[in-house]
Design a protein around this nucleic acid. Sequence first.
DNA 1: AGATGTCTACGAAAACTTTCGTAGATCTCC
DNA 2: GGAGATCTACGAAAGTTTTCGTAGACATCT
Lengths: 127, 127
Amino acid sequence: MQKKRERLLTETELELMCIVWRLGQATVREVRENLPEGRDITYTSVAKILSILEEKGALGSKKGEKTYLYYPRIAKEDYESRALRHVTQGLFDGNPGSLVMRLLDGTDLSREDLAEIRKTIEARLDP
Amino acid sequence: MQKKRERLLTETELELMCIVWRLGQATVREVRENLPEGRDITYTSVAKILSILEEKGALGSKKGEKTYLYYPRIAKEDYESRALRHVTQGLFDGNPGSLVMRLLDGTDLSREDLAEIRKTIEARLDP
DNA sequence: AGATGTCTACGAAAACTTTCGTAGATCTCC
DNA sequence: GGAGATCTACGAAAGTTTTCGTAGACATCT
């Protein structure tokens, strides 16, 4: 048996998934209306991706007033962690510390961000 | 014209790219030999992906003793930053602080990791 | 020179992702 | 009840990624 590698959502899937996370639940129409400016894909294309997301277990659906409502079956936080593990494995040798180091090096973090992160770390170091 | 979104390397491309980064430079054969246990793809498949990576500008190649040597044209560090920006944008609302928070929440970081990260942050806060 | 092995190029099959159109179902408003 | 709009299901075209096979080039050994 082939070890099924943990696949992340694809670009477009994630894009739509984020909209559902943000709205809490949404119809195809609503997802479509919440696409960013200039991003236009047809109603049916959006419907298709949502149904794929349902197939993959990321979304559920239920009958709403007149149309289906899609809602997340996985928490955004969980997916975030999963994505970070994936990146950590694939690019940072499984070492999350290296990831943070790279982020600190390659990104402009505000003093506020830095201070907040430090506070969180200290809370963890001194329980 | 369609705004070309910044595409990251695909899974397999990244997998091979990491091997070249690790080895510094490598022949097709060497890359193949450095695949993880149980991952077998044919010589020609590896060669194909490497040539795609060259096409995309991620690798260069030169004549070695008897066979081509591939070497990185982009630094791993740069790619890491790029990947993190991509994740930050796509999943954390453009906010790198949120990313770190999620990593701290969703991952078991060792005390050493935490301490090291804190040190880096403090160095940045008090220059 | 000829057989054998290794290497690169090329193309294309297979798999997956993204996008769309059509057709049938359902609702809504005269 | 019928015209028109909206919704879902289905399938498939178009695009991309992954994988492989074949063929020609080049070397090596005998």
